[in-house]
Design a protein around this nucleic acid. Structure first.
Lengths: 236, 236
DNA sequence: GGAATAGTGTCTATTAGACATTATTCC
DNA sequence: GGAATAATGTCTAATAGACACTATTCC
């Protein structure tokens, strides 16, 4: 029975899709693979990740958090498992599996600079998904984007993309950037308000026009689920 | 760089949570582990699954389908990845990962008998989750049950639990069994009807009371997503 | 007729959407 | 005042829930 233990074991890695919103676009962190001929896909861009280290990682999630800290220097306020992929062909070195996580973080929380040489933030427009990425990472990225958009339709997930204080217009703009479509202002505000997940801070955001109330999240604990997705009422 | 290939590799397995509805209850298939002292958790009940066979399985999903066929003799009409678990401690033999799938099938599609000695269907009431299962399978089962219930709130997934022809009352009953709560008849029928996913067959189900129209699924392709979950309107 | 289940009609409450209106700032 | 954005008011349409009502079968 236990000769299964002597069977060939697949490679096991963890990859993380790290999203942020910056400069009016949804961006994803990519890292450049080492330019070593013995490694597959040398010098190509890939999702941050790597093999599980059975001597250091207690479990998959802490492995993901470790790699996230290495690349961004911060603990992601939101980290969710997306799923796992595994096949005989996805890695030329042999049967391999990867456990994919996706993370959301506020761009403001990032330390400027960082390992700028071998990492980049890439805007996720419809056309950029054709980006040539190592392994099956384009597929993983597509799946993460689909999951993110699906969840943003009916949850408060974009709060994790905001800084500590923000206006309702800024929050709506973040939703619109992720969903790539405009939302109706009144309906948006009614939803957010009735969810009771924000509280005003005694401060306004001033610009060249009417100042806006600043809000913060009541509890960073977990995302709120709305009863209906955006736009579930029928069209006129 | 490629010394990672010489690092210890975790064990990689696939487990499947197979749901069906039978005799007014939601049931899960369990298999008894072999009574071999060298194997962990001998003679205990566990989810059907096992190690990936890198010489036979092309990818994770086909591995899950293979094990599903072995246990039930059929191709599951619905198979979805639930997620993956991995840690240093979940298997006493070492760092291990498992990729968990969940399947839905109509009880009528099962061949009676089967390997009845070492498999059993277990009803999933609130109390039965305390069932002592091998490894962390109680946790995996809880997660699958939570995912199933969450999805049943806003999708047509229970159609995969139905036989080829059924009445609307039978379908509603299946929803109610999975969700463990009653649904309102009119609202249920309006939803199903407006989703246009069923078509009547020219046949009635007769009993000792008024005959009911039989329906079948228009397309087995994929589940329908309702705009709102059940019960999202406010209470009076 | 009575019991039981199938199926429909009708009313209310909620809320997304559309869009108009008012409010506040800077120039 | 005018431009720009913030914030709110109001009306409509869709639909879930509640529940009463009708329809059809067997006894």
């Amino acid at each position: 029975m236990s000769q299964v233990l002597k069977m060939d074991r697949p490679l096991v890695s963890v990859d993380t899709v790290i999203f942020t919103v910056h400069e009016q676009s949804l961006q994803v962190l990519l890292v450049r693979r080492p330019e070593v001929a013995t490694d597959p896909y040398p010098a190509m861009w890939a999702l941050p990740g790597g093999f599980v280290d059975t001597t250091r990682d207690a479990n998959l999630e802490s492995c993901a958090r470790r790699k996230l800290r290495d690349k961004t220097g911060i603990d992601a306020p939101y980290l969710e498992q997306l799923g796992s992929w595994g096949s005989a062909t996805r890695d030329p070195r042999g049967w391999s599996t990867t456990h994919v996580y996706f993370a959301l973080l506020a761009h403001a929380s990032l330390t400027p600079g960082g390992n700028a040489i071998d990492t980049q933030w890439v805007a996720q427009g419809p056309q950029r998904l054709r980006e040539r990425l190592a392994f099956d990472h384009a597929e993983l990225l597509s799946a993460a984007l689909a999951r993110l958009r699906a969840k943003v339709e009916y949850t408060s997930l974009p709060l994790y993309l905001m800084g500590p204080e923000f206006t309702l217009s800024e929050l709506q703009k973040t939703y619109e950037i992720v969903l790539a479509r405009a939302l109706e202002k009144k309906a948006f505000r009614t939803r957010i308000s009735s969810a009771q997940i924000l509280e005003p801070v005694p401060r306004m955001k001033s610009g060249s026009t009417r100042p806006a109330q600043l809000f913060r999240v009541k509890s960073r604990r977990k995302a709120h689920t709305f009863a209906r997705p955006f736009g579930s009422a029928a069209a006129p």
